[in-house]
Each structure stands twice: as C-alpha cells, then as structure tokens.
Design a protein around this nucleic acid. Structure first.
Length: 485
DNA sequence: TGAAATGTTGGGGCG
DNA sequence: ACGCCCCAACATTTC
C-alpha cells in the first residue's frame, strides 16, 4: 500500500494484542510502518544489561515474525530515538508517529522532543498507555500528592473498576509498501553467543507474545490457587514467571488482570485468595513505577535521605563471592547460581540474597542493583530500583532496616527439604536435610559421607552472621536521628 | 514479606 | 504432698 505512513514506534510493548497504539494506527486507516529503535548511543549506568539484551533479541524476532504473518516487516534501527525518527520521517514522508509511553526517568524528555519535532513539521504525534494499569498521574492521595506507602496506594487502585477489556490483536493491517532500510537482528549486536553464557536460557524461556500468553495460562490453570503459600517456596514452581514478559510488554498488566478475574469467576471461590495475592503483586509493580515517576532519582539515590550517610563497606573480594555463588551460605549461593544460569531468581530468594549483600556484607544496595540489572532477564528500572531500596530499608514504605534475614533460618523455613539448594549447589546434595543449610555445623563424618570438604569442594562461610548482624545494627544507629523511634 | 532477646507459663522430675 | 528447679513452648519486646 502506498501513501504516507504512520510510524508505529514499538518501545516496551512488543506485542500485537492489547496494544492501543497499534490499534489506533490501524483505525486511522493509513499504511503502517512498524519500527523498533535500539538506543546504544547514550549508555549510562542503566544501559540495557546483558541478560535483557538476550531476551530482547528473541522478543524482537518473535514480534517481527508476527508482523510478517500479517504481511509486514519490522524495521530495526540503531541510534537515539529522536534522530532515527527524524530520518524515517524524511525518508518516507510519514504523516504521524504513534508510540507507547515509557516511564523511565530518561524517557519523558525524549518523548517531549519527539512531540515538539512532530508539531514543528505539522505531523500527528500520539502517545498511548498500556505498560501500567494506572497512570501515575491518576492515582493521588486525599491531599492530591503521590503515595509513599503501598497499602493505601493499593487500596486506591483496588477501589477503581477496571472495566476496559484488553483489545484483540488486529486481524489484518495495511503496511507501508515501499522498501525501508533497516538493520538485521545481528546488526543490533544484542547477543552473539560468544561466550555462550545464555546457553541454558532457551530451555527455560520462550520470549515473545505467544510464550507470555502460555505462561499466564499455565499459571492460572495450575498454580494460582496455591499462590498464597507456594509463591514463597523456591523449590516449587508456584509463581507466574511473567516478569520478563511484562517487562518487554509481551503481555500487558491489563491482560493479566482480566484473565485472573475471569479465572476467579469460573473457579467459584477456590482460587480467590491466591488470585487476590497475585493481583497485589501486580500492584507492587504499579507502585514501583508510581514512585519512580515522582522520584526519578530512585535508581541511584536512597529515598530516605539519611541513608546517604550510611557507612557502607567496599569489599570486592566478598562481592565476587556473592556474585559467583560462593559465600558458603547454601541458600544464598543457590540463588546467585540460579540467577547466573537462568537469568532469573525466585522472589523469596531475591530478598534473602539482597539482605545478605546489604546487611551482612554491608555493600551498597546500588551495587546489588547493578548486578541484577546486568544478569536478570526481567531487569526493570522500576521494580529493580524500588525493590533494592525496600530491602535496604532506605526506600518508601521499606522493610525496617533492622529486619535482617538469617539465611539459615530462611532456608530452613522456605526450603525445608533442601531441594532448591541441592538443585543449584549440587556439591552439597549428599548432605542430610539437617545440615543442608549449614554444612559447617555438620560433624566431620557426615561431611565425609556426603563427599563435602569445606574450603575445598564448597566454601566456608565468608562472614559470621551474628557479628555482621550486630555491626549492621550499629552502623544503622549512626545515621538514625537520636530522637527518632 | 524477621530474628534474637527477654518474659511468662506450666508440666514434670526430684529431693 | 509440696516446693523447687529446669526447660520447652509460647508471647512480648527490642533491634
């Protein structure tokens, strides 16, 4: 189809269904030019991490093939979005640019510049939503401020009827017919497989819209009923594992919400508890972006300013132990190895390893945030920042600083039989349950029988839990105002 | 979406 | 039979 196209700029919304931007472009009745722009030109601290780049490559391939099935081609380009869009407009005579809103701190300025350029050129520029259920501007406290506490925020969200239904994917589309130059997936240099640290990822993940839909269906068919309890057990597949799909917009929170409501209605009461807990987790994601929108420093600066003076330590040796899963604490090491091998970590274990880094090693939360940013396939500027601040005790509505996890007790509570540890730390698998979370307390003959030699086949603990706990509490006292409770 | 210290209670062994 | 002590088991407080 000829004529001046509308550019549909895919951002973090790599799907065809429930895509307001795409649907509006179809409804506009003009030829569509679908584009994805990879911006590697301004790599700041939060340039896309390695695991995310692996995922993005697969997701773009999936999106491209979905568009091909409708007769179109996804144009891939590299550079700053404004410049790339300007060139595309000039090349094609595009009459409009449609895109989905992003909520990263660096997106707002970019979106304004694009809108300004379109206005100056007399082009239509439209921004759509879909990445969140509730726009940050729509949820305000009674005194018209942003929320700083989760519970009232979630109550506000829950008091709103979500009546809108997810949009179906367009059944047919008219694409811009002329040839438009673009990069190949390889050109984007996202993940070339050397070294092949992501070798195990494809066994566990199916990036793309269809994979996301399948994950949601599997969760609602099998796991949501037990979600309340099972979500805390890392040895059980009790969570949805939708986080990377949500991050890349392969599925929308509205689609998750609507499908959950539908499952609740057809299950006649048996899954109400689990479904409600799942909905509250979706709202934690919303809350993270609410905070990020109003406090754009969230990824870098402690929300509670007194934490700027916290006496953190630098210890690159212990940091490396943590990153490599060699701390000597089995549940911590299991989590860090799951992360490295699969690009993902169970949420309960994320809290345990984060508490260990921030409190027992007393290494700044930003250091952990950065490691997660590079290694998680679901690395997300909103959730990652808000969650690290939550664990560190310096965030909005955070866990009190003195809430220090004991990795032995957490392991014994949530991985009672040690199945999770045995899977990810196989050199300990011969130990009896009694010592699986504290091998250094096992009698010598038990260690021998299990084939474990501490300091050789598995490290001794790199810190003393009691001493580091006391030191962390003492450090906290130095930043606390004397009159504060 | 903690853990450890401290306080309380009650059963049972034992002089 | 009684008081005393020990110590789980549970509750409360503190960090």
């Amino acid at each position: 189809m000829s004529g001046h196209p509308i550019i549909v700029w895919f951002t973090q919304d790599l799907r065809l269904s429930d895509n307001a931007c795409l649907s509006a472009a179809v409804a506009a009745g003009r030829p569509i030019l679908p584009v994805y722009i990879l911006d590697d030109t301004t790599p700041g601290e939060f340039a896309m991490g390695g695991a995310s780049r692996w995922w993005l490559r697969q997701s773009l391939a999936s999106l491209a093939s979905s568009l091909e099935a409708l007769g179109g081609r996804l144009v891939l380009r590299r550079g700053q979005a404004l410049g790339v869009l300007e060139r595309l407009i000039a090349e094609t005579g595009a009459q409009g640019v449609y895109f989905s809103r992003s909520y990263s701190p660096w997106s707002g300025e970019q979106e304004k510049k694009i809108a300004a350029h379109c206005a100056a050129e007399g082009l239509e520029c439209r921004r759509f939503s879909g990445f969140l259920l509730h726009e940050p501007e729509a949820i305000r406290t009674g005194s018209d401020g942003p929320y700083k506490v989760y519970t009232p925020f979630s109550r506000n969200c829950l008091s709103r009827d979500i009546t809108r239904r997810p949009r179906p994917a367009p059944e047919r589309m008219n694409f811009y017919g002329a040839d438009v130059a673009g990069d190949s997936l390889d050109d984007l240099n996202l993940y070339l497989g050397k070294p092949d640290w992501a070798a195990d990822f494809p066994k566990r993940w199916t990036p793309g819209e269809a994979g996301a839909r399948e994950k949601l269906k599997h969760f609602l068919d099998n796991a949501v009923g037990d979600y309340d309890e099972a979500r805390n057990l890392p040895d059980v597949k009790g969570t949805s594992r939708l986080s990377p799909h949500l991050h890349f917009g392969e599925i929308s929170p509205l689609q998750c919400w609507a499908a959950t409501s539908h499952a609740v209605a057809s299950a006649r009461g048996s899954i109400d508890r689990g479904a409600h807990t799942f909905e509250k987790e979706i709202l934690w994601r919303e809350f993270s972006y609410h905070l990020l929108h109003y406090w754009p420093d969230l990824p870098n600066e402690p929300f509670k300013p007194e934490f700027a003076d916290f006496p953190w330590l630098q210890d690159d040796e212990k940091l490396a132990c943590w990153q490599q899963g060699k701390t000597g604490f089995p549940i911590v090491d299991a989590g860090m190895r799951e992360l490295w091998t699969t690009g993902w970590m169970h949420n309960r274990v994320r809290m345990i390893v984060a508490s260990f880094l921030v409190k027992n090693l007393r290494i700044p939360w930003q250091v952990g945030e950065q490691w997660f940013w590079d290694t998680l396939v679901d690395a997300d500027i909103g959730s990652n920042s808000a969650s690290w601040q939550w664990v560190a005790g310096c965030g909005a509505d955070a866990a009190p600083y003195f809430r220090i996890f004991n990795p032995i007790l957490q392991g014994e509570k949530f991985d009672k039989r040690g199945g999770y540890v045995r899977r990810w730390v196989p050199e300990l698998s011969g130990l009896p349950d009694k010592f699986i979370h504290k091998p250094w307390q096992a009698p010598a003959e038990v260690l021998v029988a299990a084939g474990v030699e501490l300091g050789a086949t598995y490290p001794r603990p790199i810190v003393d839990l009691g001493e580091t706990r006391d030191a962390a509490l003492a450090a906290y006292k130095t930043i606390r105002k004397p009159d504060a409770a």
